[in-house]
Design a protein around this nucleic acid. Sequence first.
DNA 1: TAAAAATGATAAAACGTTTTATCAAAAAAA
DNA 2: TTTTTTTGATAAAACGTTTTATCATTTTTA
Lengths: 360, 360
Amino acid sequence: MVAINTINLKITRDSDIMINKKISIKDIAKLTNTSITTVSFVLNGKGRISKEITKKILDVAAKNGYEPNRMAVGLRTGVSKVIGLVVETIGGPFFGAMAKVIEEEAEKEGYRIIYCSTNNNIQKGKDVIRMLSQQLVDGYIVTPMKGLEKDIQNLVANEKPVVLIDGYFPGLDIPHVLVDNHGSAFNAVDHLLKAGYKKIGLITADLDLIQLQDRTRGYKDALKINDIKEDKRLIFKLPFDTDKDKAINAIKAFIKQQKQMDAVFFTTNYLGTMGLESIRQLELNIPKDLAMISFDDNEIFNLYPPGITTIQQPTYEIAKSAIDLLLSQMSVDRHDISKIKLQIPSKLIERGSTTEKNRF
Amino acid sequence: MVAINTINLKITRDSDIMINKKISIKDIAKLTNTSITTVSFVLNGKGRISKEITKKILDVAAKNGYEPNRMAVGLRTGVSKVIGLVVETIGGPFFGAMAKVIEEEAEKEGYRIIYCSTNNNIQKGKDVIRMLSQQLVDGYIVTPMKGLEKDIQNLVANEKPVVLIDGYFPGLDIPHVLVDNHGSAFNAVDHLLKAGYKKIGLITADLDLIQLQDRTRGYKDALKINDIKEDKRLIFKLPFDTDKDKAINAIKAFIKQQKQMDAVFFTTNYLGTMGLESIRQLELNIPKDLAMISFDDNEIFNLYPPGITTIQQPTYEIAKSAIDLLLSQMSVDRHDISKIKLQIPSKLIERGSTTEKNRF
DNA sequence: TAAAAATGATAAAACGTTTTATCAAAAAAA
DNA sequence: TTTTTTTGATAAAACGTTTTATCATTTTTA
C-alpha cells in the first residue's frame, strides 16, 4: 500500500527540456526507501551510512538533479552563503573592476554576491544595510561613508563579518583595505613640483569622505614640505550633485579664473575626465598651459594625448585583499581580523601631462 | 508562572550600538501577550485584529527593530524577492550602467539583485543558472549566449520569469530587449559610405554571439545595398581570449596589411578602444588615413580627438525595459510577456572620425 | 558466553514564517 | 428569546532542511 505521490516526474518534452517540479530530500528518501535523515547525512557526508545506501541515494539525487533549497538551509543553519557588497555605485570603472574580482573570489568559496549601491546617500546606505541584515547575508563589504558608523558598528557588535573598502572610519577598529590616499596624493603633487610646476591647483568633490580628505591633506603636505604657501584660491570643491555639463562649466570657470595656475590635481577619476573635457573645451595645451594628474587610472588617461599622469589604484589587490579578509573571518576558524587595516600602495603612472616644465 | 525567556534585550552600550539578538515574531507575541498568528496578521495587514492590539504589536515591533527573517519568509512563501542578474562581466561601462539602472528600479519594488558574471563561458553560465535556481531568486535577467538555450528554457518551463538582455535566442519565444543590432550596424556603415569611404573594414570578436552576427550582417547588407563587393580580407575576427597587448598588435597588423582600407567599423566597445590604441600607435590620422566607427558610446570616444563616431546603445532604456518587463511578469497579475521582443533604437553619434572624405 | 562497544539507521525537534481552519464571544437578525 | 452572523483571536500545519538523541543490530572485548 504505497501512497501514490507523484513527485518530480522528469518529463522529457521537446529534446530535453524538463519540468523539474523541484525534488526535495523527502522525495529522495521516499524513492530510496530510506529516511530524511539518512539522505541528509549522505548528501552532507556527515553520519555513517553504508556504502550501498550511500550510492543509491547519490544516484537518485544526481539523476533527479536535486538541489538543496537554500532558503531551508539558510533558515536551519543561519548561513546564507551570500555576501553583501555595498558600494557607492556599481557603474564606473573602479567599483566595477572590484566587483568583478570580489565575485570571482567569493564564488570559489561557494558564496554569491548581492550588491547594492548607495549613490553616496546616507539614508540609502542605512536602508541597504538594514535590508541585508535580515538574515540575508553572512558578511559585508562596504564602502563607508560618514553617517554610517553606527550601522556598521551594529553589524560588528552582532558578530557579522565586515570589511570596509576604499575608505574607513577614523578612530574605529573596523578592518578595512584601501590605497594610501595621503601618500599617493603627496607623491603626485611632489612629482608635479619636482617637474617644475609651482602653482598647483586642487579639484576635489564636496563630499564628506575620508578618502578625499586624506588626498587633500596629501596635497597640502606636499606643498608644505616644499615650502610652498598654500593658496586657498587654488582649491576648488565641486558640489556633489552637480550634473555633468554644469560641472564642466564650473571647472572651466575655475581654471580660467586662476591664470597663474600651471598644474592641477584631480582627486577622483570622474573629476579627472570632466577636467579633461574642460581643458579641451578651453583649448589649453597639456602640459604647456596646464599640467595635470588625476587619481584613478583609466583607459582615457592612457589614450588621450599626450597621456595623463595618474595615480593608479590597484583595484585587483584591493578587492582581493578585501574578499580574502572577509572570507577568512567567515571561515570555521573565524580569524579575528578586527584590527587589520591594509594600506595598499598605489602606483604613479607618469605620462605626458606632467612632462618636466623646462622640456618644452 | 511566566517562563523567563531572555529575549532581545536591547542593550545600550556606548552611545547607541545595540546587540540585536534578532527578535522574532514569536518574541513579539510573547511580549504583547498575543499569538504568533496575530502578530503575523498585524505585520502583514491580513486578518482582522483590533485597533488596540494592532497598535501594541506595531509599537513593540518598531521599538525592537523587528525585521522578518527573509529565509523563513522565503521558505514558507517560495518567494525570495531577489532577482538574478547574469551578465557577461559586470566590469565595463555597458553592463555596469545597466546594472545600476536595474538595481535602482528593482529596489523600488522591494527586490534585491544578486549578480553573477559568466565571462562568456558556457559552463560558468550553466553553473550560475543552476545555483540561482535553488529557490534563491524569483526571476532572471540574463545576457544569453549560445549553449544556454536549454538551461533558459528550463527556467521558463518551470515558470520562472526570464528576460534576456543584449541578445536573444533565434527561434525561441523568450522575451528579450536589445538594440537593433542589424539596423544600427547597417546605418553606421551606410554613414561611412555616404561620407565617401569606400574600403570599409570590419573588426569583430570571434565569439558565437548573435549580437555580433547581426552587426556583421548589417555591415554586409550596407555594402550590398550600396553595390560594393564584400572583401573577405577586410574582415578581421579577433580571437576571444586574446590579452590586451596581443590584441592591439593583432589589430595593428591587420590595419597595416590592408593598405587600401580607408575606414573601419568596430563591433564592440572594447574592440573600439583597443582599435583606437592601435591606430594611435601606428600614428595614423583619424579620419584622414583611417576613418572609424565603434559600437557602444563611451567617454573616450567623446574626448579623443577628433572624436570618434559611435553607435550609442541607450543603456538606460534597455535596462529599464528589461527590469520593467521582468517585474510585470512577476507581479500578481503575472502578465504574459513571453512573446515580447523589444528592439530599442540606437543613436548614431557623429563625430570627427567620420568627417566627409572630401572635406580634407 | 555475557557485557561492552561500534555500526547503521531513524524519529523528532527546530529554524521563523504564513495561512487554513477553528472557535469563542459579541452583535445582529429572527 | 433563540438563531444567525460578524468579529477577533488563535492552534496547528507546513515550507525543506540539519542535527540531536535514540535505538536496534552487529561486532568486539572481557
